[in-house]
Simulated assay, not measured.
Amino acid sequence: MKTILVIEDKKEVRENIAEMLKLARYEVVQASDGRQGVALARSTDPDLILCDIMMPELDGYGVLHILSKDPNTARTPFIFLTAKVDQHQIRSGMNLGADDYLTKPIDDIDLLAAVELRLKKAGQMQQHVDQPGLTGFLNALRQVQACPYSTFRYAKKQVLYAEGDTPANLYYIRSGQVKHTKTDASANVFITALAGKGDFVGLPDLLQDTPYTESAEVLHDAEICLIPQAELLTLLTSHADIGAYFMRLLASEVKQRNERLLKLAYQPVRKRVVEALLLVYRKFYSLPDDPINTPLEQDISSTPFMTLSRENWAQLVGASMETVIRVLSDLRAEGMIKLSGNQITLLDIDRLLRLKH
């Protein structure tokens, strides 16, 4: 019989939830505040934790933070209970490692469905961590049904994490587009990197266990899988092939960012605009089989239109919006691109490549 810990300061709500779970043949342990909840989580080793957010002394975020740092409870599925949910709440909870949210008043069916799903995924996760292998690990991430980790849908402009947030998950993009941004002292925003299908987001800061040094925001609706920090560290230390793979990703990311930094510092704006066009095209519209080792010139084969706001183009180029628009207009007049609102079509890639060098 699975054991579920319910942490809720309101007695009536706590007992109603416990009653529903007991009818579904779960063993239930109850805590009336965050401190008692942490103690019971450590002593009873529950299979899942349901925890209210707003509690006196130690709130739900504090409970999750403490338990996520304890190796014995870090893998325990954790569902927040809350009377209201906004995007900031969701991001804060997910950054700490929460698996799901349930909004009060809680529907019986929603509660039992969420509990069943998280327990099922926890069982799959344990099997996956025991014998993943690099191929199995990557295949599981790509396949929704086979993946043991929580997957969420994010809307355009939704923030995955902000500068200064504490890392708790590695983000794997199943679909969609994400931008990494950094803000300087004058409040200017720069896009430092782009991420798309098959990319991992937030790896360096997660491994260093330091606050994020940049923000990550969704450019186009995305489906993203969250790998808890504790699970990632277990994989890296237990499986040499997975550790080597992520070392390779880190090395590639450092190399690409250094190259972009040099170009932003020394290239004229026209070249930077061309670089940005080709970067977005390669990243989102002409993906090679091996994006780490495939040169840009080898993977350009077609000319679909690209959709990105002028503000994002300016942040990517590192210039004012007016300057970027002027350069884009010049490229259009020279027959290399076509502009239609926020859509850009590359008409003469060979000439653009020559301009880049």
Rank of each mutant, 00 (worst) to 15 (best):
D184E: 01
L232T: 08
Y212G: 05
T234L: 15
A230H: 10
G202T: 05
L249M: 10
F190N: 06
T166M: 07
M247E: 12
S175A: 10
Q158T: 06
V254E: 04
D199R: 02
Y171S: 12
G164T: 09
Y281T: 09
S238K: 14
F200W: 11
D205K: 11
D199K: 01
A230L: 14
K156G: 15
Y172L: 15
G198Q: 04
A162R: 14
L233R: 15
L226E: 02
E223H: 15
H239Y: 15
Q229E: 12
G243D: 13
S150K: 11
Y266W: 11
E231P: 04
L279F: 14
T237Y: 07
L160T: 02
T166W: 07
L219Y: 02
L235R: 06
I224W: 08
A195G: 08
Q256P: 08
E214L: 14
E259A: 15
H180T: 10
S286G: 10
Y285S: 01
L235I: 02
K283H: 04
I242M: 05
D205F: 05
A195D: 00
L277A: 07
S150R: 09
E275C: 13
Y281D: 06
G202N: 00
A276Y: 03
H220N: 09
E217L: 09
Q177P: 05
I224N: 01
I227L: 11
Y172S: 11
K182S: 08
A265S: 12
S215K: 04
D221G: 15
I227G: 07
V189P: 00
G198M: 04
